[in-house]
Amino acid sequence: MSDEETSRDHVTSLERGLAVMEILAANPAGLTLTETAEKAGLTRAGARRFLLTLVATGYAVQAGRNFSLSPRLLTQARIWLHGVPLWTFAEPFMRETAARLHESCSAATLSGEDMVYVARVPGPRIIGVDLQVGAHLPAHCTAMGRVLLSGLGDKEFEAFLARARIEPRTPKTTTDRKRLAEIVAKVRADGYAIVDEELEIGLRSIAVPLRDRSGAIVAAINVSTQSARHTPAEMEAEILPILQQTAARISDFFVVQ
């Protein structure tokens, strides 16, 4: 579409009306007509038309001289949120993280003894394990798997240890069940997990939890890298803070859902 076509199709009044809605959203206590006009860069007459239109359509309410958004906007947002898979929201944050770190970024949930990928943004560098959405990997030797295991109750985790096939994927894989329990306990205390070549030689991964409104772990998100690129200490210092920020942004959607 050319600039001329874009300009012709652009509805300036709608843009200004949306700007007024954003200003009201940023001021939940409400604003007067004058305050709204000043913040929106509108005349009082222009701001009045937008505000009264929002009130008439139920998207805003007027109490005395103050205008504020009504719950109708939240209702419409919830309808939209429930109609779109959660991972549709998560992927843009994951892409931003992958691009920033030049590494892959994935999310997973627990399924029996495995973690299953629910979203994935590949990095620019090839990693031997073929990973796609829907792929399963053993929870015991993956960073996301250990984060997910750390969210289980004591009885659930004991049941996992009793039934799981804990087999070595590399010479570095932890297969001692008592030692694995200690590692998962540390993950629970630290709030993150690092797995160093236990799934694949040359591969390191760091993961953090995604939590719902109750604080329960419902998924995990990770960044994977080649061992030649980052030491575990460097991952903690350089990758972990960024990954935690991404997880917090994604977890906001779990709270809304």
Rank of each mutant, 00 (worst) to 15 (best):
L152P: 05
N222C: 02
G64E: 02
F157Q: 08
L137W: 10
A25D: 14
S251C: 07
W80M: 13
S2C: 09
R48K: 14
T6R: 14
E236V: 07
M94P: 01
T170S: 09
A164P: 07
I201N: 12
E197S: 09
A162C: 09
A25Y: 13
S205E: 14
R72W: 03
E167G: 08
L73C: 03
T142C: 06
L24K: 02
L210C: 02
K186E: 15
G202M: 08
L161F: 08
A162F: 11
A228E: 15
A107Y: 01
G134L: 04
V118D: 00
E91Q: 14
V11E: 11
L180Q: 06
I221K: 03
I242H: 14
A26G: 13
R188F: 08
P124H: 04
S7G: 10
L42C: 06
A63P: 05
A162G: 09
F50I: 11
V121G: 00
T12R: 14
F93Y: 10
D130H: 12
T32S: 11
P122W: 05
M1Y: 08
Q257S: 12
R179Y: 08
K172W: 08
A162M: 10
D9K: 15
F50L: 12
I217A: 00
I201P: 07
S13R: 12
A119Y: 02
D9I: 13
A90D: 00
R120Q: 08
L152F: 06
D114V: 03
E4F: 09
S68F: 02
T174V: 14
G153E: 15
E22Y: 12
M235G: 00
T109Q: 10
V129T: 15
A185S: 12
A107T: 05
V118R: 01
A60M: 04
M235C: 02
L243P: 01
T246F: 02
L14N: 13
A119S: 09
E156I: 06
P28A: 06
E156F: 10
A164T: 08
T57S: 15
R163V: 13
H102L: 13
F89A: 03
D154L: 15
R146H: 07
K186H: 13
P71Q: 07
T231G: 04
N222D: 10
T142N: 07
N27F: 07
I242V: 15
I127L: 15
R72V: 01
R16W: 09
G58I: 02
A25P: 07
S13K: 10
A181T: 10
V20D: 01
A247N: 00
Q132I: 13
A90K: 01
V129Q: 11
G123V: 03
G145K: 01
G202P: 07
I239G: 02
L18W: 14
V116K: 02
I127C: 12
P209Q: 02
R146Y: 06
A98Q: 00
E4S: 15
M21W: 04
G64H: 03
G112A: 03
A47D: 00
G151K: 00
R44D: 13
G145T: 04
F89D: 01
R72Q: 07
L180R: 05
H102K: 13
S13N: 14
V55A: 04
L148D: 00
P92F: 01
L73Q: 04
A19V: 11
P138Y: 04
D196L: 08
A47W: 00
E156N: 10
E197V: 05
V11Y: 11
